[in-house]
């Protein structure tokens, strides 16, 4: 227990770093991944704005980024991180790579959720003469919102875990602390403490996400 208490300030700093990385990458996922998901849905063959070439290109790009093992993506993006935030180490630099990974991750989940919206409901809106922006906001995002929130929950949890890998390039965070003290210095107590923090964090996110999704779902 002593070793954990001795590292108290470093623990707090690590939690802050994890939260920074996760919130930046998840925000990027929502701000950029959500529109890409909508684009994928709308341009898919047989859908409202079917456009095979555009769908093909975007879908391929999404798959491409998602095929990279995260650690390799992280290293490959070092120059890019340096360009964006001026440095290749620290939570901000890691957030760049995390964001690049989170955007296509969430985009696919968004596309999937939108496909759950019954076609008839979309058709009724088209038949009423609604413009595309009303169909997107009032039908697609509104009808799919439980799925969109569940997808966001999955994204947050995955990226809490990814952020631990970011520690290896100097990203910091709880995962990094666990690896440096727990794994490399055989300090089991610190490792256990880090894992407890991660477990609590993940549980909290999952519980909040499930609660929000069920509150938003008026289908039954």
């Amino acid at each position: 227990m002593d070793s954990v208490l001795a590292l108290k300030s470093e623990m707090i700093k690590a939690i802050e770093q994890t939260l920074t990385m996760v919130s930046i990458s998840v925000s990027a996922a929502v701000i950029i991944g959500l529109p890409i998901g909508i684009l994928l849905f709308l341009t898919a063959p047989g859908h409202l704005r079917a456009n095979r070439p555009l769908y093909g290109v975007v879908s391929y790009a999404v798959n491409l980024v998602r095929s990279f093992p995260f650690l390799i993506l992280l290293v490959a993006l070092i120059p890019f991180s340096r360009m964006i935030v001026g440095t290749a180490i620290g939570p901000l630099a890691a957030s760049v790579s995390l964001s690049v990974a989170a955007i296509p991750f969430y985009a696919r989940l968004v596309e999937q959720s939108l496909r759950e919206v019954p076609n008839g409901v979309i058709e009724a809106a088209v038949a009423s003469g609604a413009p595309m922006k009303h169909i997107i906001w009032g039908v697609l995002l509104s009808e799919a919102r439980p799925g969109l929130v569940s997808g966001l929950t999955v994204t947050i949890i995955s990226f809490i875990s990814y952020s631990a890998a970011a520690g290896t390039v100097g990203g910091g965070g709880i995962g990094d602390l666990a690896i440096r003290y727990g794994y490399q210095r055989f300090d089991t107590e610190v490792m256990a403490a880090c894992i407890v923090i991660l477990v609590v964090l993940v549980q909290l996110v999952q519980w909040t996400g499930s609660f929000a999704a069920s509150r938003l779902d008026k289908r039954k």
Partner: peptide
């Protein structure tokens, strides 16, 4: 789109927005 506003339509499975 404008013309469709003066054409109402109803369906077998109602097609209402379930979250609204």
């Amino acid at each position: 789109r404008e013309a469709r506003r003066s054409i109402g339509m109803i369906f077998q499975h109602y097609n209402l927005l379930s979250n609204e």
